[in-house]
Simulated assay, not measured.
Amino acid sequence: MKYNSVFDIIGPVMIGPSSSHTAGAARIGKAARNLFGKEPTWARIHLYESFAKTYKGHGTDFALVGGLLGFETDDPRMSKALDIAKEKGMEVEFIEDNSAANHPNTVRMLIGNEKEQQELVGISIGGGKVEITELNGFELRLSGNHPAILIMHNDRFGAIASVTKILAKHEINIGHMEVNRKDVGKEALMVIEVDQNVDDAILKELQSADHIIQIAKIVS
């Protein structure tokens, strides 16, 4: 499957009733949509623990779908997101998953269309804040509090150096960086938090660096 990878995290202003179960859920949904790069035509949403028990009463269901529709957390349409998604032909399935989770407010979102799909795990940690902990099988910990670049690359010598050289040339300071790979020599994911938003021209230059497959950015 081909995976797209452009996403950002949205702000804390919200339509209620709950910052953790509504605003946080909307932020996770919006992250999933922007990662996918377009509005999906279907979504399978696994809810765990507290999310699974209260998602209807606390608005987690419509908030997640509202995020997939691209709504901001304070969008007045948020409470009608399920109806709007149905009108647009988006097929949404909620699954109350009994599997154990590391956090009670955890959701696994599989979204896609007829050609491609993507998987994301997010948790709502309170006050509308979220963390993205998994992306297409790669573990990560991303809050969206700082601008960041996500780079899918081949696990080869020189890939990291080629990226950091370009960032240094443009005087972009790295605040935090982590690299994760599924296996030696296979695909790897580089997550770089930086001190300022990165222009698209720099992303294009990074895309041409050694062993780079795909690039996404998060704006602050």
Rank of each mutant, 00 (worst) to 15 (best):
M78A: 15
R77A: 11
E96N: 08
G70R: 07
G67F: 05
H58N: 12
I95H: 05
F62P: 00
N102S: 15
M90D: 06
E93H: 07
K80A: 15
E96D: 12
K86Y: 10
S79P: 10
A100R: 01
L64K: 06
G66M: 04
E72A: 08
G59A: 02
G67A: 01
K86G: 07
H103G: 03
P104Y: 06
I84V: 11
T73C: 15
G67T: 05
V92T: 06
S79N: 12
K80W: 15
K80N: 15
G67H: 00
R77N: 14
G70W: 03
E91S: 12
I84Q: 08
E87Q: 14
L68G: 01
K86R: 15
F94W: 11
G59S: 02
N102E: 14
H58K: 11
A85V: 15
L82M: 11
T73W: 03
K88G: 08
I95D: 01
M90C: 12
I84S: 10
V92I: 11
F62Q: 04
A63Y: 04
E93S: 10
E87W: 07
M90L: 04
M78L: 15
N98P: 14
L82H: 05
I95G: 02
S99R: 05
H103E: 03
D75G: 09
G66I: 04
T60W: 00
V92W: 06
K86C: 12
D83V: 14
M78D: 10
I84F: 09
M90K: 06
